[in-house]
Design a binder for these strands. Sequence first.
DNA 1: TTGTAGGCGTTATCAG
DNA 2: CTGATAACGCCTACAA
Lengths: 333, 333
Amino acid sequence: MATIYEVSKLAGVSLATVSRVINKNSRVSDKTRQKVEDAMTELGYRPNSIAQSLASSRSNSIGILVSELHGPFFGQMMAGIEAELRAAGKHVIITTGHSEEDKEKEGIEFLISRNCDAIILHVEAVSDDYLIDLCKGKIPVYFMSRLVAGLNEQCISLNNELGGYLATQAVIEQGHTNIAYISGPQFKADSKDRLTGHMRALAANNIAFNKGLYFEGDFKETGGSEGLKHFIKNKQSFSALVCANDEMASGSITYAREQGFSLPKELSIIGFDNIIFAQHTYPKLTTIDNPVNLMGHMAAKLVLKNVYKQKDIVIEHYFEPKIIMRDSVSPIK
Amino acid sequence: MATIYEVSKLAGVSLATVSRVINKNSRVSDKTRQKVEDAMTELGYRPNSIAQSLASSRSNSIGILVSELHGPFFGQMMAGIEAELRAAGKHVIITTGHSEEDKEKEGIEFLISRNCDAIILHVEAVSDDYLIDLCKGKIPVYFMSRLVAGLNEQCISLNNELGGYLATQAVIEQGHTNIAYISGPQFKADSKDRLTGHMRALAANNIAFNKGLYFEGDFKETGGSEGLKHFIKNKQSFSALVCANDEMASGSITYAREQGFSLPKELSIIGFDNIIFAQHTYPKLTTIDNPVNLMGHMAAKLVLKNVYKQKDIVIEHYFEPKIIMRDSVSPIK
DNA sequence: TTGTAGGCGTTATCAG
DNA sequence: CTGATAACGCCTACAA
């Protein structure tokens, strides 16, 4: 692979001049610029971004840490971030944390060690203290879907509590009072907040929280089926089921039908996130819209504005969920 | 951020010695190792992987190019690759090509310029010639879901033609002869192969290919609904619909129900890929299993074996799809 | 086992 | 506008 040195020799100029035409900044006479460019194409020269990065301590790449690479939620999030950044000529380096403290930390250190200009984190297992410490470092850090106390300016988050409230409220408005709830893993802030919202809606309507109608799921399809199975086994009676995300709602819809429920007549089900597939369950899933793709774009804009000093960017840190009415919730008879 | 130099000073040893304990290879006496490690923790030292990479021209990171970051197909693929590599202590750098030639090339160059030890590509728009050229470079290149002539050893692929055949054959075996087909974008090799398989099944059963029952979709949910709408508008008669992937199958199931079809009685639908969500459509989607997660693992193993010289790894280059019988296909009345 | 010194490919600061 | 030259942080023969 040709280096800047060979280019300079072929073009008959110095290293510095070649570097200048690469970086298009300081003035170079058109004549020499042309010579250099010719030499570059002739040699098929490509700048080595590793070397650039080492020398300049800038990399034009942004590190991203997500919990998982699969799943509709993270897919939309990554896609949003990447699209915005790519359009600005930046690259993205993605790694995973698997919701485990060690792996999250390791992932973060990898990104830092790669000289990312900034990192965008969706972390779930690591403590606030760790994050606050992290922010004292040199590299700018931003957070998706996590509100770290005192670091609001660096967070893009959804009002999950409100979302949880809206979901349960929607079901209550249809006359349901026996409402089962399948939450996400409770070590995750999102899950906790959604559950809090659920409780608030219950309380606001004078419905007592029934522990027998609560199940902690895993945010996956299986969580939905297992939760429902659990309720049925324990002979609970309920006419509505609110799930803390759409995957679990899908799983429970499938399982409910297998058990002979007529949906939504005998059981109303509501989800959370509004993943694309929510339009393709049967009945079509009523759910809470989580604009995670948009939030990804916003996180990217945040780094564009703060790190790359792009002007005229308006940042919205806090997103409000809204309900999407479809067919999986019906009035109680 | 502390450097190796400060560590060496604090530990009272040379740069080389510090480098040795970082790389755990050449022998260092326990005593000095301890001194160095103490110094490292005291300073909170983290190796700068950029500098490591520049000096050693090795990066312990593998570049991955996928078309999109979202969607169940790529999600599973990335997850498979990452899991395998992560377990081996390697990191993954993911970027996207968006199925556009320019972006694919740009993505590849980014990965190369980042000194990846190897790159794994899922490219769709770039030509074989370009890829063959690419392989002449210094950095090892591997391909997912694409067979490049002469480069079989570097490819992990699925027999898409067979999959296409199996899908249509399954529907024929249930007595269907008027079979509509919604393909993927025909510039993609996968789509083309699946269609070829469809044609072979038709031919093998003496069913003429009817152009009116063919629609080129986009591999997304909308492709399924649009295709079905197209057939209906043109007053085609058909009792079965085979879709080149599950997203389109889901879209067509939803649309079919909206149009009042009773499924699967009045219309049998089959998909391709067996994404997780295929279990949650109604009726549950009969489809062709595409072990893309496994294939991701295999691609990772390929680099573990060839690039990192790990022994005892058995590579399987060629995967066979198989049919997954569920409920969306029924015998013709 | 440990240290010295040159080099990886660029950038950036000075002079000129 | 252009050219030397010293960093950037680390690896790796080669010596000791």
